[in-house]
């Protein structure tokens, strides 16, 4: 308990106060996330949607920080222990950038060189009826040629 001094009773009170504070922060962050999530329903502007998603990701990271730092108590551990855990996780920075960029590049290349694939993404289909589920593989059709005769 390096973050509090005094008698055990005072330390205990300090820890409980910290738990309360973090609980309130996590709740507020979640509520803000949900407000943004509701605001995104029906939002048509691509820029606004992207900004909302970016904000949600930042709030998500803030929540993760508070859980790990305070609930899991990592903030009050020895610095070397923190480093052995946090530094390897920095690999995620590269993972996320590399894989998402690769996925995006694959989509762009496919749309460019596979016209059929690209056309599929512009054809609207009817939603299936409810009921009689899970009875065959024809229930759900991927974007295949039979779905859209207009493309022939």
């Amino acid at each position: 308990m390096s973050h509090s001094h005094g008698t055990p009773a005072e330390q205990h009170a300090a820890v409980i106060a910290e738990i309360k504070k973090v609980t309130i922060i996590l709740s507020v962050l979640t509520i803000v996330e949900l407000i943004i999530g509701f605001a995104m329903i029906g939002m048509t502007s691509d820029f606004l949607r992207l900004a909302a998603k970016g904000t949600i990701v930042i709030l998500m990271m803030a929540k993760a920080f508070y859980i790990v730092a305070y609930f899991m108590h990592l903030k009050h551990e020895v610095k070397n222990l923190i480093m052995t855990i946090v530094v390897p996780l920095a690999l995620f920075i590269w993972f996320i950038i590399a894989f998402l960029a690769d996925g995006n590049s694959y989509k762009n290349l496919r749309n460019k060189y596979d016209r059929h694939y690209q056309e599929q993404a512009t054809i609207k289909v009817e939603k299936k009826e409810h009921g009689a589920k899970h009875e065959g593989t024809h229930e759900v059709k991927p974007a295949d040629a039979h779905e859209a005769p207009a493309s022939h």
Partner: peptide, 23 residues
């Protein structure tokens, strides 16, 4: 979701823009 027809290998939900979705 299962009773709506969703499961591994089954996706009854269309894409947001109304096009056919994958599983």
């Amino acid at each position: 979701l299962f009773h709506e027809g969703a499961w591994w290998g089954a996706n009854p939900f269309l894409n947001a823009d109304g096009t056919a979705s994958s599983t």
